[in-house]
Amino acid sequence: MFVSLRLIALPPEREAEKEALAAQLQAAAASLPGVRTCWIAPVSPVAVINAGHVVWRMSFASEREALAAALVPAWRGAVSPLLGGTQVTHLGYPITRSKVVPAGGGIWRALIFRITPQGFPDGAQALEQGLLMMPGHVSTIRSWALSPVSLCEGPKAYTHVWEQEFDSLGGLTGEYMTHPVHWGHVDAFFDAECPEYIVDPQLIQVVGAIDHPIME
């Protein structure tokens, strides 16, 4: 499976349009070919970093189908006009390491980051191993995926998408943040004070409310 994730930032004078834009994109996306799942939502104003205003996550059977969806007339006619005047960060990534459990609503959260060149390969591998430890220790993570970015359009060459689903925002702001596996181990790769520091500070954290699981 291949995910196409877009984070759409509106100019300040248009921020109030985010609900309407999400609804319009939902309608436009219905005519795109190859889409297995599609979730579009206003970005939660809580616990976000550099996330823009609307998040759009689609999954496809393959990268080829994801790329093809943006080349059809329906895209040019219905989607492109809606994205005019916005800044879009687009990430494409195959789902390779994940665990998804059936559940109800809650929140979806993604941390999108770039490991700097000096972090490869050893630091990147250590960071990935640390992140992959977290679901085994943080009980509020119900579904997760750690994915290498293979396609990136936008202002920063992001390398990884670390996404999870929680029953509620409290699962992220509570146990996820307070568990020692986070602040005592994994965070060193993100902390400018640690020798392990390899993550570009211009990262993205995006959170959105979901009424059903969107990861598969």
Binding site: P180, W183, G184, A188, A192, E193, C194, P195, Y197, P201
Partner: peptide
């Protein structure tokens, strides 16, 4: 403040051979 912190540790690196930072309980 991270850039100010990083600036100090980069200055520190000019005087050191290695360093570790550990979190303890």
């Amino acid at each position: 403040e991270r850039f100010e912190k990083l600036a100090w540790w980069q200055e520190s690196d000019q005087m050191t051979l290695s360093r570790k930072r550990r979190v303890l309980s």
